[in-house]
Design a protein around this nucleic acid. Structure first.
Lengths: 109, 109
DNA sequence: TTCATTAATCGTAATATTGCAATGAAACAA
DNA sequence: TTGTTTCATTGCAATATTACGATTAATGAA
């Protein structure tokens, strides 16, 4: 199948999974880290920085953009990509809620 | 290709991506939430709770176990699964470091 | 022993993802 | 205009993932 049965899970579970999935590739992690570091960026930089083909990077950027985590402004012939700060903070809330669930002290196994 | 070029990324980036990938499926998110909620569990519960085939749940449990996020103790004919608390906290550190990167105030786009 | 229960594993089909070369499209320079 | 640069898109091929039925292995009950 290779097809996720989204309909049997609730909205929150699907949202967490969507965010996590986009972080589930080291290239996208590296892109985001680079954008945080230099705080503004053009795509060409990333191709050199990361070491994948230009079309591959462009594809990863599109996925990040589709989820709203980055935005890109066209500046002449190049594109300025950066973190979408409001959406990043929103995403953080969702992920923290999941990661920071209470661990009770009861020992089971 | 369908094959991630792990070798061009650093250890931290690959580790973040591995953790994120395992959270990138709503069934695994749901399994973890359930384990947190009831704090001890057997696999059969999960099959009813989640609504996927037993073999599918078993597969997801294996992935979570392989990453060390859960552990399973055999108890008679059933298996008691629960969160691996130490490893979960360790994972949280790694993910927080990534999610909580500083967002500078400079506006770029 | 035989039967039932539980969960892991195997095999397989359907679909998704990754990566790249080739091509397009838009902006700018000469 | 023509060429150049920059990035997006398209069209693959290779591999990975998801899901399930069937089977296996292990335990416990009768």
């Amino acid at each position: 199948m290779g097809l996720v049965k989204t309909e049997i899970f609730n909205e929150q579970q699907n949202e967490i999974a969507l965010f996590a999935k986009v972080f589930g590739h080291p290239a996208r992690v590296a892109i985001l880290q680079h954008l945080f570091k230099i705080d503004t960026c053009i795509c060409g930089d990333l191709v050199i920085e990361i070491g994948l083909a230009q079309s591959t990077i462009s594809q990863h950027l599109r996925e990040l953009k589709q989820l709203g985590l980055i935005k890109g402004n066209i500046e002449g012939t190049s594109v300025c990509y950066c973190i979408h700060k409001e959406n990043w903070m929103q995403m953080k809330k969702v992920m923290h809620q999941f990661l920071d669930q209470d661990i009770s002290d009861e020992t089971c196994c």
